[in-house]
Design a protein around this nucleic acid. Structure first.
Lengths: 331, 331
DNA sequence: TCTTTTTGATAAAACCTTTTATCTCCTATA
DNA sequence: TATAGGAGATAAAAGGTTTTATCAAAAAGA
C-alpha cells in the first residue's frame, strides 16, 4: 500500500506553487520577517495542500540546532530507565525535539560509539541516566562542550542532576508507620554500598531514634526472607512495622511473615520502596510503598536539557524531587 | 570542565591543514575515488589530530540517508519493548545507525506527532513494536513510503513482521513436561482475546490430546491463584504438571500450590512463560520457563530494517523466531 | 513636487558534505 | 616525437533550508 517513492516536497515547490520567492515562503511559514498577512496565509495554505514538511537535516545544518537530544543509559532492561525515558520523551515531543536512545549496557566501547554518533548528529544535549544515583558517566562525556543533564546518576560538581529525594521518601514512610501507631519500626534494605540505601537509612535513623535498627543486605526478595528468619530466630521484642528498601525485599518479607502466621498489617505493617507495580500490586495484601515519581523526574530532566540547549543558565547542583506514598493494604 | 564552545572542525579545516582540496580530503577519508596512498594516509592522520568528525546532518542532506531509524512503541513501561530496543540498538550502532525512541503511550495524537517528527528527520526506516502481536500500527504509518518492520506487532499483509514462535514455545514446554514423565498436564493462561494465548493453547492441545484442558483468564498472579483454587475445589484427578501462560500466572500458581502443601516439582511440575527474571528467579522453587528471546528478535528486526533501508528486497510475511527453555527448579 | 520612511518581497550567501565533471601531469605506446 | 591513456588532484554543483543585504514600490512627510 506504500506509495511508490513520491518525491518529497521542498520549500522550493511551495514557493513556486504560491508564486513567491523561496525566502518569502520561508518567512511566511516561520512567521518572521515582514510579510503581508494575505501572502502569509496563502503560502501556509499551499504548503498544507502540498503536504510540505521542512527537512530537519537542512534546517539543523544551518541553524546549528538539531532539535534532537541523546539519552545515554547504562542499563538495558530498565525498570528505572524506561519510565524516565517516557517522561523525557513526553516533554520533548511537545517541543518538536526527538530523543536518541543509547543503551551502553555498561560497556565503555559501546558508550564511546554512541557518544561519537550523538556528536556526529549534532545533538543539542545529552541526558545521562544510570541504575543508581552514585554511578558516574563515561569520562568522555565530561569534556564534550555540549550540555549534559544527569538524571538518577552522579554528575560532576558543576553539573545539574536530578535525583529522587530518598531522605524525604524514607521520612514519609516512617511518618506513615508512626501515624498508624507503630513504634518498633525495623528497616530492611539493600546493599550499604549504594548511596541511596545509606541516605534512606540515615533519614530513617533520625526519625526512629536510637531504637532504630537497620539491616543491610542485597536488593533481592531472598534477602527479605532471610532477614525475617534472622529477626524471628532471636529472642527479644519483635517489630510491629517494617520499612523495606525495595518492593522486592518487601515481597520477601511479606512471604516470610505469612509463613510464620504473622498477620499483615495487623501484627506487622510492611512498607516498600519503588512502587514497581508488577510486585507491589501482587503481594498479599497489596503493598503500601513509596513511589519515586520517575516519570516526573524525566519531565524535569527534559525541561532542564531544553533550557540548557537554549543557552539558559541553570543553577548547578542536585535537585531532589519528592517521593509520594501509595497506600495499599500492607500498611 | 566543559571546554568553552570550541568550534567544531569541518572537512575544510582538515583539507587546509593537510594542504589538499576539500574533495581530495573527502575522497581520502571515505576511501573512494582515486587517491594516492600517501596523501590518503596524511589526510587521515591530520583529521585524527584535529579530532574531525563529519557532520551527519550535512552528509544526510546530500546522500538522502540519515542513518537514523525510528522505533515506535505503544507502551511505556516496557518489559517487552526495552529488551527489543536494546537488541535493535545493538545491531544498529555497529552499522553507524542511531535509534529514535518514540513512546506513543497508545495515544493517537502522540503517535502522529512522533511520526511527523521522524519523517522530518528523514529516518531511513521505522520499526513498529507493540505489547501484543495482534496490535496494529497507527493507520498513518501504512501510507508513508518509507520502510517499516513490525516486531511483536501486527503488520499488513505485504509487510515483514517478526514474532516469537508461540506455538513452538508451547511445544517445547509440553515436551519438557512429558520428558519428566508427566501425563496430566493443565494449561492456565491469560485472556483468550490475545492471539498469542490462542496460538499457544492450540499448540498445547495438539500435543496434550483430548485430555488437555485450557483455562483462560487474565495475565495476573491473582488469576494463577484462583485457577488453582478452582481446580482443587472440584473432585477428580489432579494434574501432575501445569504449563502457565506467563511467569506472573505461574507465580500465583506456585504460591497457591504451596499454600495447599503441594510439593513442587515433585507432586506438580510448574512451567512459566516469559522468563521475566524479577519473577522467575524469585519464586520458590525458581521457575522453569520459556524465554521469547526478545533481544534476538530486536537483532533480527534491526538487520531487517537495515536491509530495507538499503533497498534490499525482503520476503514479506511473519518470521517466527524460536523460543528457548530455561530450566530452573520448578519443572 | 520632491524626499524620506515603511512595507513587502527577493537574490544570494551560508551551513558542511559528497560527487561529477575537469584539468594537469606523467608514462606508455605507436 | 606525437599521441593516447591513466593517475591524481580539484573546482564546482548539489542538497533544502534560514538569514542577511538589497531592491522596488507605496505611503508619509516637507
Amino acid at each position: 500500500m506504500t506509495s511508490p517513492e513520491e518525491k518529497r516536497r521542498t520549500i522550493r515547490d511551495v514557493a513556486k506553487a504560491a508564486g513567491v520567492s523561496i525566502s518569502t515562503a520561508s518567512n511566511a511559514l516561520n512567521g518572521i520577517g515582514r510579510t503581508n498577512a494575505e501572502t502569509r496565509e496563502k503560502v501556509k495554505r499551499v504548503a498544507d495542500e502540498l503536504g510540505f514538511r521542512p527537512n530537519a537535516l537542512a534546517r539543523g545544518l544551518l541553524t546549528k540546532r538539531s532539535h534532537a537530544i541523546g539519552m545515554l543509559t547504562n542499563d538495558t532492561y530498565g525498570r528505572l530507565t524506561l519510565p524516565m525515558a517516557a517522561g523525557v520523551s513526553e516533554i520533548l515531543v511537545d517541543h518538536g525535539v526527538s530523543l536518541f536512545l543509547c543503551a551502553t549496557n555498561n560497556d565503555p566501547r559501546l558508550a564511546k560509539l554512541h557518544l561519537d554518533a550523538l556528536l556526529d548528529r549534532q545533538v543539542d544535549g545529552i541526558i545521562f541516566t544510570a541504575t543508581r544515583i552514585d554511578l558516574g558517566p563515561p569520562p568522555e562525556l565530561l569534556k564534550l562542550g555540549i550540555p549534559v543533564i544527569y538524571a538518577f546518576a552522579q554528575g560532576p560538581a558543576d553539573s545539574v542532576s536530578f535525583h529522587p529525594d530518598d531522605a524525604q521518601g524514607a521520612r514519609i514512610a516512617v511518618q506513615h508507620l508512626r501515624a498508624l501507631g507503630r513504634s518498633r519500626i525495623l528497616h530492611i534494605t539493600g546493599e550499604q554500598d549504594y548511596l541511596a540505601a545509606r541516605i534512606r537509612a540515615d533519614a530513617y535513623r533520625e526519625l526512629a531514634g536510637p531504637s532504630g535498627q537497620v539491616m543491610f543486605g542485597d536488593w533481592s526478595e531472598e534477602w527479605g526472607h532471610s532477614a525475617i528468619d534472622a529477626v524471628y530466630s532471636q529472642s527479644g521484642p519483635k517489630p510491629d512495622a517494617i520499612f523495606c528498601g525495595s518492593d522486592e525485599i518487601a515481597r520477601g518479607v511479606i512471604d516470610a511473615l505469612r509463613d510464620r502466621g504473622v498477620s499483615i498489617p495487623d501484627d506487622v505493617a510492611v512498607l516498600g520502596f519503588d512502587n514497581w507495580e508488577v510486585i507491589s500490586k501482587q503481594t498479599r495484601p497489596p503493598l503500601t510503598t513509596i513511589d519515586m515519581e520517575l516519570k516526573e523526574l524525566g519531565h524535569r530532566a527534559g525541561l532542564a536539557i531544553l533550557g540548557l540547549s537554549r543557552r539558559e543558565k541553570l543553577e548547578p547542583g542536585i535537585v531532589r524531587l519528592p517521593c509520594s506514598l501509595v497506600a495499599r493494604g500492607s500498611a
